[in-house]
Design a protein around this nucleic acid. Structure first.
Lengths: 167, 167
DNA sequence: AAAGATTGACACGTCAATCTTA
DNA sequence: TAAGATTGACGTGTCAATCTTT
């Protein structure tokens, strides 16, 4: 087998580590949230994003964008959350094509209860072994990768970050 | 909501980026392999690992370890691969509890054909935006995270790496 | 009883098709 | 016709239960 061009040794080593992280980290977070709060990581993430939004409400499209998910995936998950009375959906009064998703009080409670344990897990699993410099490295490298990953640097989702139920 | 202790700003920023990478990178790789080779990323990874092994053969347990997967998950995937005549399974002659998985010639062909495109995608999506220093950072940080992730620093899977059909 | 592995049920993600409003 | 969103079918992953060999 002699392909176009391989990865060099450094890249190969880095790649193996990245793949391992991508395989194991999500699984670990999933287990923690499932065990301690009965939530999937994605459910938690969606509710956390809503909890930060004005009026705890977001358009499905915006929510999908902020959650890095397809509209389809989001819709399935929100259906589930709605079934559990954690989120409600209703058409936008101004443009009926748009659906607004709102976190209920009950939903907020669920995230609020789940948050401390999840944050602790993230601190332990991700940041536990990193010093300040490595945290900065992590952010820089991830940002660079995301740059290559998103062909469209169009819609900037930069905005004042409010601390709330998340992360 | 006032939990035990939050992430500081730097950690929070890094965490958001990491989550985005974890959400998007696997999806992107999956799409590429599915589209160009009809393989899932995990299937590719499993076959690539077998292609490097002596006699293209590995015990299911070892394969699961190297692939960072549960034995159950691996078993399902290998069943699928076996159905497509890409892998064969047989009990170990010495200890019949053990199952040996072997990559077939046909399976090797499949990986060999898929590899160049996949490597190119990895180069483009992951390393395209990184300079040498950032590649090193990436490896360091991932290694550190894996350290926190694996409670057991027991079994060292360090061994001479052979370049083959992978990465 | 323990190790190695497999299986089946269930939950989730993806894709393509569909529906509704603009 | 396009934008926003939903749905259903299908493949895959996970968990617990199971099976076989030691």
């Amino acid at each position: 087998v002699e392909p176009t061009r391989w990865l060099d040794d450094e890249e190969q080593a880095a790649w193996r580590q990245l793949v391992a992280v991508i395989l194991k980290l999500p699984a670990a977070l999933e287990r923690q949230l499932q065990r301690d709060a009965g939530l999937s990581h994605f459910e938690y993430w969606v509710m956390a994003l809503l909890s930060e939004a004005p009026a705890r409400t977001l358009r499905m499209s915006d929510l999908a964008g902020q959650a890095n998910a397809s509209l389809s995936r989001l819709s399935h998950v929100v259906s589930r959350l709605e079934r559990h009375h954690r989120v409600t959906r209703r058409p936008d009064p101004g443009d009926a094509r748009i659906t607004l998703a709102t976190l209920t009080d009950e939903g907020f409670e669920v995230v609020a209860v789940a948050a401390p344990g999840h944050v602790a897990a993230v601190r332990r699993l991700v940041f536990g072994g990193l010093d300040r410099g490595e945290v900065a490295d992590l952010e820089r490298v991830c940002a660079a990768i995301l740059g290559s990953l998103d062909p469209a640097p169009s819609t900037e989702q930069r905005s004042a970050r409010t601390r709330s139920v998340s992360d």
